[in-house]
Amino acid sequence: MKTFPIAALMFLFCLAPAHAGKTLDQVRQRAQLVCGVSTGVIGFSSADSQGRWNGLDADVCRAIAAAVLNDPAKVKYVPRNAQQRCTALQSGEGDLLSRNTTWTLTRDASLGLHFTAVTYYDGQGFLVPKKLKITSAKQLKNAEICVQSGTTTEKNLGDWFKAQGIKVKPVVFEKFEASIKAFFSGRCQAYTTDASALAFIRSKEAPKPDDYIVLPELISKEPLGPVVRRGDDEWFAIVKWGIFALIEAEEYGITQANVEQMKSGTDPAILRLLGSAEDSGKLLGLERDWAARAIKAVGNYGEMFQRNVGSASPLQLPRGLNALWSKGGLMYAPPVR
């Protein structure tokens, strides 16, 4: 219910005149990047007990703040729920939305937004109790499936089971906690959301993780990535290339630890990326060491992944599709040159 007055307010915000100035100027002027994040998705964006935001999405905010303001701490994190997120950004609230948001045609083409780049390739899966002895999502005939509202999840569910000719009953909850509680109390025979979140739910929320399994099927493509408002191509380019620089850093083996050292290396491509050779920052309206600052703040994409969702995190997600293209994954950055 809380989203309602807020969404209504957003509606009123549409009345305010559109910003004439550039996002970059505004960010510099207020010396702060306003970043829309989730209300708490472990591994992507969640606040710890000290109020520090952690996760892959939060690190994207940090990297952009470092590139633009030379300080990864100058970020104001604004938690947004699934319903608010796009409306808030459209209405001029925040510079960037970095909140596990799926890139779809409808969102890209009709919401006044631009998706910048993909930071995580996800897919929708199912979590089921082991004792149901189900091994495939195709066996979920007549099952009740708990799902949280405000995502692409409900539509994928509708599409996939329609295509399979199977009837299921979604039970849609507004709050994550309620949906989880209902599933673990046995109200539903399955829980569905993005596979990355299922791993977390199984390991952290289940009374006994071993009593539950994640089914092998992924029923959708969920490319997640940061979003910016339309109408500011320069800012769009900064966020996009900020992410590409982190991916390219992994390709070249530049890490948080060795970035300073690499600045005085011999590889022209690395020197170019780190601003020791040509000034790529000038083209984006940034300083020449913009990429080096971002890498120094959060590490390369691989380090971000390991720390937040990979082997060094509670989620223990495999790289899978999110490995570099040269290692069988989909992470590929256009060249920074």
Binding site: F11, Q83, L111, C146, S149, G150, V172, A178
Partner: peptide
């Protein structure tokens, strides 16, 4: 919407999310 019953607001919320038409749905 808090307890998963598909009433008007719950369905309209979902529609809002799929279509992005916030002002219209509200």
């Amino acid at each position: 919407v808090a307890i998963g019953y598909p009433d008007l607001v719950s369905v309209a919320n979902t529609t809002l999310n799929q279509t992005g038409r916030a002002a219209e749905c509200i």
